[in-house]
């Protein structure tokens, strides 16, 4: 249970970080709360680690009326405490345990792209995006990847080996919308067996489901529904869960239906209250 040897790089600024990554290859180390367990269990053995924890300016949380931009070294706990985006704050409380959240980063969680992770669902539901930087030979080249293209498969995001994710943008919720995040996990703080994040406005409903597909399953439900059970059946039909030692595919399918109905009802109720309806 000890990590394999690697060469360590601790760049102080973004230019040095992307140059180093371009030169040596290897992996980016952010909060280490997913990468270090994988190293300890010898599931990964990169020759180089580029530690971005000392890169200046990457820990910023920038709030505008359009939404929240979270820098790559902003910890789950800091973003949660900032309380700048109610849906993101809600989802963060479901991520691991408080102690893990003191180190783990929001951006790291997106790049890691665990199919049961909460934050990818939030980014996907809100149509957020991730900003990636790489060294193109003369300078830093930046691209923005929308959530719909960012999550490629289980534990696989659109980040290329020579890219550093510098920030993620979570669009603000429209006024008068309600939201909810419902999940079931074996123990509090564990990865969810299944979960559903929902946003409901006066005229639309949309959910993103976790643990029931290779990437967050986003379902646009369109016009407001009066029968949330019927809406939940649509959500369930859109998912394709797999079974593992923790839960069978059938159980996950059942769960996602139940959780979708619960989340949609709760989001609808909250949205109606916000609109004074």
């Amino acid at each position: 249970m000890k990590p394999p040897p690697f060469a360590y790089h601790a760049p102080r600024d973004l230019v040095a970080a992307v140059r180093t990554l371009a030169e040596v290859g290897g992996k980016v180390l952010a909060g280490g709360q997913s990468l270090i367990p994988m190293l300890n269990m010898r599931l990964a053995a990169p020759e180089h680690l580029v530690d971005i924890n000392r890169v200046a300016g990457l820990d910023e949380i920038e709030v505008t009326p359009a939404g929240v931009r979270v820098g790559a070294t902003a910890r789950h706990a800091d973003v949660e405490a900032a309380g700048v985006h109610p849906l993101l704050t809600r989802a963060l409380k479901l991520v691991a345990h408080p102690v893990i959240r003191n180190r783990g980063t929001v951006v790291g969680s997106l790049v890691h792209a665990d199919p049961a992770a909460e934050l990818p669902a939030v980014l996907a539901l809100l149509d957020g995006r991730v900003r990636l930087a790489r060294w193109d030979g003369d300078g830093v080249a930046v691209r923005e990847v929308p959530a719909a293209d960012f999550f490629v498969g289980p534990m696989e995001s659109a980040v290329e080996p020579d890219e550093v994710a510098v920030s993620a943008f979570f669009p603000a919720l429209a006024p008068g919308s309600g939201f909810a995040f419902e999940e079931v996990s074996r123990r509090h703080g564990d990865y969810a067996l299944a979960g559903v994040c929902a946003v409901v406005t006066a005229r639309s409903a949309k959910v993103a489901c976790i643990g029931v597909g290779p990437v967050p399953v986003v379902v646009e439900l369109g016009e407001a529904w009066s029968d949330w059970r019927a809406a939940a059946a649509v959500v369930r039909a859109a998912t394709d869960p797999e079974g593992d030692i923790h839960a069978s595919a059938a159980y996950r399918g059942h769960l996602v239906g139940v959780l979708a109905e619960r989340a949609l009802r709760e989001a609808a109720r909250e949205g109606a209250a916000a609109r004074g309806a």
Binding site: L29, G32, Q33, I36, P37, D51, P98, V99, N102
Partner: peptide, 13 residues
């Protein structure tokens, strides 16, 4: 001042 997992932190970091 903040609790963290020392097994998920490199000393150099």
């Amino acid at each position: 001042g903040r609790p963290v997992r020392s097994c998920l932190t490199f000393a150099v970091t």
